[in-house]
Amino acid sequence: MSSLDIAEAERLEASNLFYRDPALYDSVQADSDSASVCRELIDRHCPAARTLLDFGCGTGRDLELLAQRFDCIGIDLQPGLVDYARRTRPGLDCRVGDMRTVRLGHTADVLVCLGNSLAYVHDNADVQSTFQTFAAHAHSNTLLVLCSPVAPIESPSPQQAGVETRLGSATVAISYEWDLRTQINTMRRHWVFDSGEEYHDSIRRRVLGPRELELYALSAGFNVLEIVNEAGALPVSGPGAYTVARYQG
């Protein structure tokens, strides 16, 4: 990894409790249906798929379920998450890499980018580079499935919710700030655990509307087949959508 990649990985880790404690992330997200929704979309549009690349695989939680059917490789920018995935899910092939620049030298039948990973790519040029990475790993008819926020959440006054975690019960106060010019939605979380421990998060996500996503996909050679709403579950994630596209070259 370059020094810039390392700095970016460290910044992301510092901004989000889940990245500093991957096991906590897994416990809170244990009932996520991202992998099952992804499989349904693949069955609908590319039922013969056998190989899959996951960009932004994180802890490998979704990848583990997808690997029950597909020959998978996962890529993530953050070494701590990849290390956790390797230790807790040793059967997975997880690698450190930046989805803006990584090149594996081969293609796959399906490319996925879940968990709002694309939303952490903020600059237009970097979004274009990410879609070029998708194209570099696509062959004719490769399916791309990505999940990302398509509309902002605005809630300047904190809202509280109770969460059960491996560390015990916690109360999370969450507020959102929307910057229309930059299209950055900032989520701030204040965690208070029954143990008395407290943590603060400040997570910045770029919101790309459906038409923007379609234009980025088209510019990289992908034809969008559908964009499907996702019902988010606060406080872990906000509402987003699954974009499904096929590579035409």
Rank of each mutant, 00 (worst) to 15 (best):
E8M: 13
L12V: 00
L12F: 10
N16P: 00
Y19M: 11
D21E: 12
D21T: 09
A30R: 08
D31F: 13
S32E: 13
S32W: 09
S34I: 09
L41V: 08
D43V: 05
T51W: 11
T51I: 08
L53S: 07
R61K: 14
L63Q: 06
L63I: 11
C72K: 03
I73E: 08
P79W: 10
P79N: 07
T88K: 10
T88H: 15
P90S: 08
R95Q: 11
D98V: 00
T101Q: 06
T101W: 05
V110T: 05
V112A: 01
V112Y: 06
V112K: 07
G115T: 04
L118I: 09
A125W: 09
D126I: 05
F134R: 07
A135L: 05
H137Q: 03
L143R: 02
C147I: 06
P152S: 11
P158D: 00
E164H: 12
R166S: 12
A170T: 09
E177L: 10
I184L: 13
M187V: 11
R189C: 10
Y199C: 06
R206G: 06
L208M: 08
R211F: 08
E214L: 04
Y216A: 00
S219D: 15
N223R: 12
V224K: 03
I227T: 15
I227K: 05
L234Q: 12
V236G: 00
G240T: 03
Y242H: 07
Y247K: 04
